[in-house]
Design a protein around this nucleic acid. Structure first.
Length: 554
RNA sequence: UGCCCGAUAGUAUAAUGGCAGUACAACUGAUUUUGGUUCAGUUUGUCUUGGUUCGAAUCCAGGUCGGGCAACCA
């Protein structure tokens, strides 16, 4: 049998580097900025970076790119660590770009000394206009030719706090006419009299991304620095700085970020949803954040499988959120405990049932015999789902209807004899008879029915709240949709069922259990649950070919 | 009208000069005490024009289309 390789382009680079001896082992890093929660797009990067190291026997650092104190917070650091751990990865070292501020400052001094950096007094607007445009070259200004001594003096004064925010910046001296905008004397340091989440008030100058990221990679001996496509034009600068500084030659490789249908994938937009109250928080189960998905009930296994399947390439992509849902269902099908919960109850009286009460054994998971059984309470009065009964059913409707028979899951076959209505004509109750010989596991009735319904015992049912989630946005490609992204928010993305009726076994299950409510989808207990009221989140629906059939005929 | 990146089924992703494959989606059918699961099968693809070659999705050239770049953000 031929060897299956199917490597993505980064794995190919790594294998080539290992084979050629360019590197004896690899070192990667996951470099989030602690200014928001991680989302599914980050999960792709995490799986790539940590996965690469795992596959090729290397290591991965978790490095916080904390060079902008005004947007960064410790809360975000903690959430990021939680999310990476939850996804199942361990970092070799926890690092911060701010750990290197002193070193970075020395690097800047070295550049000045080499005549490759200068202090610029221009305003932000002046710098922008002098920079030109992509089609027109930039121009040099008078500060560009300051002496090394003056630059050194000024830069030290910047560090010492002699200047206000925006008064001066340190710039690399490269080429104002470069066709690459990032090479037109990029800013290296700016002044920010701001409190930093780790260094406190020690610094009032902070390095820019371009003067922190590559240098941090180099300091950590990162062999493969993997980032997203929009950093491609930064690569010449990344390489230039490393070369001028004469430090470890890390290399940058770029892949296409993940885009997913019906969602947004930008921390800025996610923050807006949180701040403006469209969702309950970063971990709202409708959010594309890792913490939101965790609360929603997605599993780390499913997310990892998803990231593996979508691959790594350089073309822009828009992945169907249905693919993620597929992996969630695939995993949950194997591990979820089966339970019965009726969302919209319709009472059924089994008129010929004379026993007081009965316990019926029922498997916890037909996919996993090890999961064992629990007993279901059965009695004369039960609830079924209102939508499982129709007075005038269409063709191929296998559920209850006058005169029709169905099986109650793990119990008996019943037949509907009478429909009871109130004065307004609403159906309030069904009178049925059961077939004693049709008991599950001991069926001698010889009757075969097409439909099987879930149900709960009136006498034993417990109340529960169930939160049903739909996609947060109404359009597939939110990023490219017209107008503001908030114009496309789905106003009906959350539907709460206040008084669902559930089988009592749910009270005794472990709090982190995954459930399949029979015929209703996959669910997980929410942290809003109290002793008096269980609250469940719908993780994802079951595939519903009947719904599809109904839709087709309309 | 600058520079850079990209283009393979509806969506993703493989094929590394030699039979265009895989997953999801869609559609048939079988099984089923969940209209779930499982199983079997079907439909759909190399942006375009030239060139190199016995042979091109792959290499070369031109074109077209899509994306990125002008934050004291990362």
């Amino acid at each position: 049998m031929s060897e299956e390789r199917n490597l993505n382009f980064i794995e190919e680079i790594v294998e080539a580097d290992l084979k050629s001896g360019k590197h004896a082992s690899i070192m990667t890093r996951f470099p989030p900025e602690p200014n928001g929660y991680l989302h599914i797009g980050h999960a792709k990067s995490i799986c790539l970076n940590f996965g690469l190291a795992k596959k090729y026997g290397g290591k991965t650092n978790l490095r916080f790119d904390d060079t902008n104190p005004v947007t960064e917070e410790t809360e975000y650091v903690e959430s990021i660590k939680d999310d990476v751990r939850w996804l199942g990865f361990e970092w070799a070292n926890e690092r911060y770009a701010s750990d290197y501020f002193e070193q970075l400052f020395e690097f800047a001094i070295l550049l000045i000394t080499k005549g490759l950096a200068y202090v610029d007094d221009s305003s932000s607007d002046e710098i922008a206009s002098q920079k030109g445009t992509p089609t027109h070259p930039g121009v040099e200004n008078q500060y560009r030719n300051r002496s090394t001594e003056e630059n050194l003096k000024l830069f030290n004064e910047m560090r010492d706090g002699k200047y206000k925010d925006g008064e001066k910046v340190l710039r690399a001296k490269i080429d104002m006419t470069s066709p690459n905008m990032h090479m037109r004397d990029p800013i290296l340091y700016r002044i920010k009299h701001a409190h930093h989440h780790r260094t406190g008030d020690k610094w009032c100058i902070y390095p820019m991304y371009d003067f922190a990221h590559g240098q941090s990679d180099s300091i950590e001996n990162i062999t493969h620095s993997i980032c997203t496509l929009e950093f491609i034009p930064h690569r010449p600068l990344y390489d230039w700085l490393i070369e001028q500084l004469g430090i470890f030659p890390s290399h940058q490789y770029e892949f296409a970020r993940l885009n997913m249908t019906y969602t947004v994938m930008s921390k800025r937009k996610l923050l807006q949803l949180v701040n403006e109250g469209y969702v309950s928080g970063w971990d709202d189960p409708r959010m594309s954040t890792i913490s939101g998905m965790r609360r929603r009930g997605y599993t780390a296994d499913a997310i990892r499988d998803f990231c593996e399947r979508i691959g790594v390439a350089k073309r822009d992509n828009l992945i169907d959120v249905g693919l993620l849902e597929f992996f969630v269902r695939e995993h949950l099908n194997k591990i979820a405990l089966r339970r019965m919960v009726v969302f919209d109850p319709l009472k059924v009286v089994i008129t010929n049932y004379t026993q007081e009460h009965e316990l019926l054994p029922s498997e916890n998971n037909p996919e996993d015999p090890e999961a064992g059984h629990r007993d279901l309470h059965f009695g004369k009065d039960i609830y079924i789902e209102r939508e499982d009964f129709m007075e005038a059913p269409p063709k191929k409707y296998f559920r209850l209807a006058p005169g029709q028979m169905v099986r109650l899951k793990n119990a008996y076959i019943i037949q509907c004899n009478e429909v009871i209505k109130d004065a307004a004509g609403n159906i309030t109750e069904l009178h049925c008879t059961y077939i004693p010989e049709s008991k599950s596991g001991a069926d001698t009735s010889g009757i075969h029915v097409k439909g099987t319904l879930h149900w709960v015992s009136v006498a034993h049912a417990i109340k529960a709240e169930v939160r049903l989630y739909d996609r947060l946005f109404k359009v597939e490609d939110v990023g490219n949709a017209e107008g503001d992204f908030k114009d496309h928010i789905n106003a009906n993305s959350l539907h709460v069922v206040q008084n669902a009726l559930a089988e009592p076994a749910l009270q005794n299950d472990p709090p982190d259990a995954r459930y399949q409510f029979l015929r209703k989808g996959y669910y997980i207990l929410d942290r809003d649950s109290t002793k008096d009221k269980l609250v469940f989140n719908r993780t994802v629906t079951l595939k519903d070919t009947w719904a599809k059939e109904v839709k087709k005929n309309n």
